[in-house]
Design a protein around this nucleic acid. Structure first.
Lengths: 125, 125
DNA sequence: CGGTATCCGGGCTGATACTG
DNA sequence: CAGTATCAGCCCGGATACCG
């Protein structure tokens, strides 16, 4: 029986580390306080300018927003569009098609966040 | 038409900030480099002891693991079980029922992580 | 408007050593 | 085994000022 147990545990370890690696890969790109939030806002609002973006995401500073946007652009989640025809220059950020592959992740997180908040509130009583 | 645009944008803002808040609530609890990983391992392995847990999660130090586990226990994701009958004392950590409500989140992240990795690999060529 | 440069403080972290 | 204590470094991120 000890043997059976061991066999099972080892099987679990394999499945486990596979999942672990996949989640790690995902987290590597979208982890952090702001990345997902920026993606959400851009997906829902369409095209957004820098300062408006900052206003829509409470608490983020210009420097951090700027850095995050560069990162997101590098990873193909965000496109930076410059309208040079206007003065002063207008810059807009839009979400890419690829960023929409994150929809399931965002939905499940949002869903869980809602039920979690409900649970917390009930516990307060 | 400018008006229509404005109406739409405002509608989006409402929906947006709702989603934003929900995701924020979720991230508040499970964000960070380790939390989800610990939960995954515990869910897949059943009961795991401290040092084994550390081995299963490459890169985590004892101090950090200890802190994360306390956090997770406080938030109801993990149960700490002490088997006092044995010497030296055996401590096991197990995932709670509530932690299983995160399954959809974990699955979507894992799924996305896999396809993302595939995409990255293709881009390398 | 759309950022960047610099300064600076605090917190997280790894390393190491230690305990019951 | 299952952690905790201490310390030093460093990176993140806020505040502020500034630029085209």
């Amino acid at each position: 029986m000890e043997n059976q147990d061991q066999v099972c545990k080892n099987g679990c370890k394999a499945a486990c580390s596979e999942n672990l690696a996949a989640v790690e890969d995902a987290l590597y790109v979208i982890a952090g306080k702001w990345k997902l939030k920026i993606i959400i806002v851009l997906q829902e609002m369409g095209n957004v300018r820098f300062n408006e973006l900052q206003r829509l995401i409470p608490g983020i500073s210009a420097r951090v927003l700027s850095n995050e946007l560069k990162d997101l652009e590098l990873n193909g989640f965000v496109k930076r569009v410059v309208h040079a025809e206007q003065m002063p220059v207008v810059v807009e950020y839009i979400s890419t098609d690829y960023s929409h592959t994150l929809k399931p992740v965002i939905m499940s997180l949002s869903q869980w966040g809602k039920t979690h908040k409900r649970k917390i509130k009930e516990e307060m009583l």
